[in-house]
Design a protein around this nucleic acid. Structure first.
Lengths: 219, 219
DNA sequence: ATGCCCTAGTGCAGAATTTCACAAACTCGC
DNA sequence: GCGAGTTTGTGAAATTCTGCACTAGGGCAT
């Protein structure tokens, strides 16, 4: 490696940058041109020192006594997150969720166009989903290289999810967004992020129960 | 408070318990009756010591030299997460996602039945969504108390999300699952969990970019 | 019964993250 | 130009989380 390849940003901070970006885009829409770490902290629901530290990983882009420039910060966060280019997404699994993702155009403006959707069910292959046509998962590799796809979204049933992951990895995908409630086995070189509503609900349930026990504590 | 209200489980561990539970349910389905921390760790993709420590927060339910009993552990995790009862969910926002959630029956068997869906659009109110009928968001409070709802899912547009949150809080909801890409302002007594696919994609994008820069490092 | 083997449970050290607190530095008014 | 008022950037402390490494203790073969 040439050097420390780049100033490494802590994982916890990386997960917050998209939230800041979202807020800054909203500020931009309301014609705000400057903000302080205190303001952003309030909007993001975090500590102001954390905001400053997070932003300092990008470089020193604030002005003491003044604050940060909205447009400039947006640019810097985008650069750091790799949002200066588009990242093509392919969906595996043409069920309700998969089709909803494919039809939902909301990711294209944010830099993540869904360029394909596939399935292994012959009845689904060939069907139209929004602008796309469901293709055979066996052609995944071809589509991935043709469209230069880097991100795969798994929206299959739980039972097919691991096979879908294997297919994506074989096809050369290195980032996976997994909606199936299962822990995927993948090479360590592949990034996986899980979105499992059941897990989220259960976490809420825990804290909900905590509260109710606090009010009516019984042994 | 009577006492330390209960042995408090670290947040990081709480977030992993649902994952363990998922895996244990799968083990149960494959007739496995016992497991070791090593096995569960491999399936969950974490360290074995972490598994043991996480499970130890529930109590000492393992047997040294042997391992843990699947059914017993499932019971204990469910108890701790508050899954011995059902938690009714109401959906605010009858768009694509909201309707999908309402129709998707997959949460009922996991203890989170969707008992209602509402909207503020007169054109949507009264329409059927699966077994349910879209009701007016102004009747939220009535529905919440009538069905003893504790969790609200926000699937509105970004612009309506804060109003939806306010309505849920006013109606007495204390847990919110938010799908809108916005940081909600809520009382600290309310738990909020955000599910934002844009954020997830951007996090993937960051690590994807890191990898590509590592391979072709240019200043 | 005894001893070996295995695995849970856990103290502790190290890593990661959060938060504090303050110096550095910029703007503005005079 | 200078001082007052702000707000960033960041060492350092505090907290939380992780993972090692070892102890405790149950099962099983003999």
């Amino acid at each position: 490696m040439t050097q420390l390849q780049r100033r490494r940003i802590p994982d916890a901070a990386v997960a917050r940058l998209p939230v800041y970006l979202q807020i800054l885009n909203n500020l931009l829409a309301t014609k705000v041109s400057r903000f302080s770490s205190d303001e952003l902290a309030a909007l993001a629901g975090v500590n102001a020192a954390k905001v400053r530290k997070d932003l300092s990983y990008l470089g020193s882009y604030g002005t003491r006594g003044v604050g940060y420039e909205v447009t400039y910060l947006i640019h810097q966060i985008k650069r750091e997150l790799g949002l200066m280019r588009e990242w093509n997404v392919v969906v595996v699994g043409a069920g309700n969720l998969g089709c909803a993702l494919a039809k939902f155009g909301g990711f294209t403006p944010r830099g993540f166009p869904v360029v394909g959707i596939c399935d292994n069910d012959p009845k689904k292959i060939g069907q139209a989903v929004g602008q796309l046509t469901v293709f055979d998962v066996r052609n995944l590799q071809k589509v991935v290289s043709e469209f230069d796809v880097t991100i795969g979204a798994i929206t299959t049933s739980t039972t097919s999810a691991q096979a879908a992951a294997d297919a994506l990895v074989d096809a050369g995908i290195t980032s996976i967004l997994n909606f199936a409630p299962i822990v995927l086995a993948t090479p360590s070189s592949v990034s996986v992020r899980n979105v499992d509503l059941g897990v989220e609900l259960q976490i809420l349930s825990y804290y909900e129960q905590m509260r109710s026990e606090q009010h009516a504590p019984v042994g």
